[in-house]
Nucleic acid binder design. Structure first.
Lengths: 152, 152
DNA sequence: ACTCTTATTGAGAATAAGTCTCTTTTGAAG
DNA sequence: CTTCAAAAGAGACTTATTCTCAATAAGAGT
């Protein structure tokens, strides 16, 4: 599997490899995501608040830049949970999972499937791409919304 | 399979079923997507321009409302191709495909995989959800970007 | 340790996709 | 032909995210 687990040190090494720097902000943000309960995901705003309650005042600009950077490095997964903003979670092959989303109420169910990562691995390898993340997103209507008569 | 192909008539029937209406705008937009080359997808802006060149002046508001409506009905697929806006394409099980996206340059490759739809079907059925669409999205770094020294 | 270079941060302005409001129009049922 | 709620159009508005730029600091070299 191409995806791997990151520590502050491996983050530092990979940043330096490209002439970049490990800042306290990046280390703190990585730490937050690593200590998040499995399957928990945060929006940029969520992350900002959480950092604040822990006494770390990192600017929103930096937060947006950092999560985008880490997503592009494969450290974080960028999730589209059918809302108007993105969510991020740590990218760990061991806890690799996917999302079933109700398009009406946005209720989301996590599920695992072993073959999905294999398909992602095979497909990216075949095209010469370096795999960062693969997500199966299912859009559907949940039982409650099927019964409701509310618009759409 | 729960997903099905839509005609103007079946769209009309399904709209009426919920007390809604088939308008010329909706019929025209459905027609555009049905006549699009396989695998081609449009943003709201793209669609607006295309409609304009064909002599149909449908307002942006209506376009946004219509694609969202059709996505929620399962007629269109709402794609996140790693840009800052959504793309839409017709949802046809026969041409069901997925996307491999380079997170750096956004180059996108389409690929097919028969088992993905099966997984989507099984998972949504198990949870009692009514399947609309399922997409496997692979985020990766393309060969060209692996070689480049450009930032991220 | 001290310097130097330049990546990174912070603050706030800017951007733009998408939504909302409100008035006018129009499906389609009776 | 009426009626009435759904839908369209126009444009204001919202808000997540990006951009700009001056100030700061990571890390390499001396």
């Amino acid at each position: 599997m191409s995806m791997s687990f990151y520590t502050a040190d491996s983050l530092k090494a990979e940043l330096h490899e490209r002439g970049w720097r490990l800042t306290p902000q990046r280390e703190i943000i990585l730490d937050i995501f690593q200590n998040l309960a499995a399957g928990k995901h945060l929006s940029a705003e969520d992350l900002c608040e959480l950092l604040h309650t822990e006494g770390h005042d990192i600017s929103l600009s930096t937060i947006y830049r950092t999560v985008k950077l880490m997503a592009r490095m494969g450290i974080l997964r960028e999730l589209e949970l059918a809302e108007d903003h993105k969510h991020y979670e740590i990218n760990q092959p061991h806890h690799h999972h996917h999302h079933l989303i109700c398009v009406r109420c946005n209720q989301t169910i996590e599920f695992k499937n072993e073959s999905v990562l294999k398909i992602g691995d095979k497909t990216s390898k075949k095209e010469g791409y370096h795999l960062l993340d693969c997500q199966l997103t299912i859009h559907a209507v949940c039982p409650a919304c099927q019964r409701s008569i509310l618009p759409v």
